[in-house]
Design a binder for these strands. Structure first.
Lengths: 239, 239
DNA sequence: GTTAACAGTTAACGCTGTTCACTGAGACAC
DNA sequence: GTGTCTCAGTGAACAGCGTTAACTGTTAAC
């Protein structure tokens, strides 16, 4: 297994894993602000400069943590999907979306790190090859694939091109091969559903729904059911 | 005007305003991380401990800034509303929602501070009397009033109580006097529209829509028009 | 067996928020 | 008008942060 890996390489990989594990623990217990270079070193019995043999800066450590968390979340969703033996796409929509919400509620600190505050610089292409960005794309692909599968299995009604307006139509048509051939109107709907569900989860986790809904679970369920019906899917029984 | 205000009181109020102005400038130019106690003091020609005569901590300064920003945003929306002479509620929906989006896009740092990351502690009542929280409620009331006005002017179709499920129904009915007597189903719809529009603005400002929409303006317009139609309002002409 | 690479340490720099003891000037009472 | 008291502001210091430089000892490689 570790052929060609010298003793040092193995130990290096081990401490690197330790660093990330400690960083994760600090994140969970104290939020993003608690994962500091010195705090990680202290918890590992190392001196702060030692960590610079593993990460070029504090930001790099956090970035690596973000990438790992994206992959962990994606993995959890894929696992959920794999355990779902029957190919009912309605059930799969509920499974994945509820899975995302459950993960977010169970890991609020991690969720806040991933989705809380985002890209400060609006330049799109300069950080497109970052591991964190790629992991984010893999996460997004889970739901992009799901909606494409639903579409190709049983196309749902969608607004005509004329109803979208020329500007929006042109933007959406540019994404048609990213969405496996779906027409602009269908992509428009998919995006609308994503904003509703994803936005709802963010607002719930970040406490921006407390003023009206102490527990947003029932509301989320209702919204999800509404979307499932609009997509023409068989929704799982309530409760 | 300043009767009863001694010379000291006036100077104190002036420097307090200066502190907030500098903090605001630093926030705009460098984001939340740039508004530091020492940085503010440096820019004012003061020593850092001097600021402790005005704010008990760094967090208090940021909190005060948040409250001011909420009030500024609310004020900008109210002004927009006041300039809208005709009482067409469809036009007012477009005016206020586009106004919110415009403010967010014009002041991304401020918007990020207000809505980016939120309440870390899920306890609801311990910070309910904070000035920032009250300012946030005043902001929310703008849109809550709008939807209540629309409802009382021309009630829109809404889901029946039986379709909401008992749990959700009970939660929504508890808010019926907060929404000036609107039934649970109407509150359900209003909340859904708010999540769509507010979530869309957040995702646009925080760059979580770049991967599919380089410019979300047309999409926002389409969503807003869709909601206006569902509310049975006369939408302003496109473009 | 020599040499080079590398994990890790110590010391230090500049930065942050915060506290304490102190100074000087405006406000108020007699 | 003098005395007292409050209060804005200063200077020095502390603990903590991310980061760098010079150095030590162990490990892999030729």
């Amino acid at each position: 297994m570790d052929e060609g890996a010298t003793r040092r390489d193995r130990q290096r990989a081990a401490t690197l894993a330790d660093i990330k594990a400690v960083a994760r623990r600090l994140l969970v217990s104290g939020g993003v602000g608690a994962v500091g270079l010195r705090a990680v070193a202290r918890e590992l019995g190392l001196t702060p400069p030692a960590l610079y043999r593993y990460f070029p800066s504090h930001e790099a450590l956090v970035t690596a943590l973000i990438a790992d968390l994206y992959d962990e979340l994606t993995g959890a969703l894929m696992e959920l999907q794999a355990a779902d033996t029957d190919a009912d796409l309605g059930a799969r929509l509920f499974l994945l979306t509820n899975g995302l919400r459950d993960w977010a509620l169970a890991h609020p600190s991690e969720f806040a790190l991933l989705f809380g505050t985002a890209i400060p610089n609006p330049d799109a292409k300069d950080h497109a090859d970052t591991p964190g960005h790629q992991a984010a794309m893999r996460f997004g692909a889970v739901f992009k694939d799901l909606v494409a599968q639903i579409w190709h299995w049983k196309p749902f009604p969608y607004p005509a091109d004329e109803d979208l307006g020329p500007v929006l139509l042109a933007q959406l048509q540019q994404e048609t091969e990213e969405f496996q051939g779906m027409p602009a109107g269908a992509i428009y709907l998919a995006l609308s559903y994503w904003v509703r569900l994803y936005g709802l989860i963010c607002m719930e986790v970040f406490g921006q729904l407390h003023w009206v809904l102490p527990d947003a679970g029932a509301y989320f369920e209702a919204q999800l059911r509404e979307i499932g019906e609009e997509l023409g899917l068989d929704c799982p029984p309530p409760e």
